[in-house]
């Protein structure tokens, strides 16, 4: 055995793996994710604050997503109401439609649909933009000009996403309920005031809090995943495509997991 192999000045040692190569990569990736998140929480509190960039990103994420979110929310409200009616009609309980729509949309569909659409639209845009900036050395250019690219690019986008997704969720929920109302009004001739009386009667304060907390977590996840994938992308244009794609897939996957976990926690609180 050549013991000199690891001495300085000779050929570098072959990389050793603590476990298997694949498992090592997973641990390394997890450590990188942890460090990325930790860096966000470290940097978000301290100046300089990039207010201009945050407002710009809020516009990009919030305002520009409105048309797509509105259309989707409205259609979901109509379709969900339409599909729920036959089941309730079997029991002669179509009068419970507003309550059913309210619980389903406010507790689950509103936040989830908004987050999934935002993951597609916003997550991919952030992943692609930062990925492209990484491979064209724009992030390096910021760094060598003594500007903190993490603060300018990542903190601003994650904050904007965390702020805007709850706002979009509220809007989607409202639009979905309006879609549901139109369907109910057309079929059951329910008035707007009666519809919304039943809607708010069916939900609790906990539902609204849970929905808001969920959408904040979803917003943070979308922003963070998009930024992480884009900021750490490599391998040229291929890497940009991968960053955009994997931002969407990973964010959606995490959103479902979070939905499941938060639902369990809320149910436990409700039971308590």
């Amino acid at each position: 055995m050549d013991l000199d192999k690891n001495k300085p000045g000779t050929a570098p040692a072959r990389r050793r793996y603590v476990t298997t190569r694949r498992l090592d990569r997973i641990f390394v990736e997890l450590a990188k994710v942890y460090r990325f998140n930790a860096r966000f929480f470290r940097e978000v509190w301290f100046p300089p604050y990039e207010f201009k960039e945050i407002i710009k990103q809020c516009y990009e994420i919030g305002v520009r997503s409105l048309p797509l979110i509105s259309l989707t929310g409205f259609i979901i409200g109509i379709v969900f109401t339409n599909q729920s009616r036959p089941s309730l009609a079997d029991f002669g309980a179509t009068s419970l439609l507003p309550a059913l729509i309210s619980v389903a949309i406010i507790r689950a569909i509103g936040p989830l649909v908004t987050a999934l659409i935002a993951a597609g639209r916003v997550g991919s845009a952030i992943g692609a933009e930062l990925g492209s900036m990484r491979v064209t050395e724009q992030i390096d250019a910021m760094e060598v000009s003594a500007t903190n690219p993490f603060k300018f690019l990542v903190v601003s986008r994650v904050l904007a996403s965390t702020l805007m997704i709850p706002a979009l969720t509220m809007f989607t929920t409202l639009v979905s309920l309006l879609g549901g109302y139109l369907n109910v009004h057309q079929n059951e001739l329910t008035s707007l005031s009666v519809f919304f009386y039943q809607v708010f009667d069916a939900i609790t304060f906990l539902d609204i809090v849970a929905s808001s907390v969920k959408s904040v977590i979803f917003g943070f996840t979308i922003g963070m995943v998009g930024c992480y994938k884009g900021y750490n992308s490599s391998k040229g244009t291929e890497g940009v495509g991968k960053a955009a794609n994997s931002s969407v897939v990973t964010a959606m996957f995490l959103i479902f997991i979070e939905e499941l976990l938060i639902m369990q926690v809320i149910n436990a609180i409700r039971a308590f």
Binding site: T136, E137, Q138, A141, V144, A146
Partner: peptide
Amino acid sequence: ALRLKIGFSFQNSALYDSMTVRENLAFP
């Protein structure tokens, strides 16, 4: 602080795509 004394001209220029020339120069 040291980087402010070093100018780095990148191979592909690395101009910020989303900004005009004026904004690129005003950025630092």
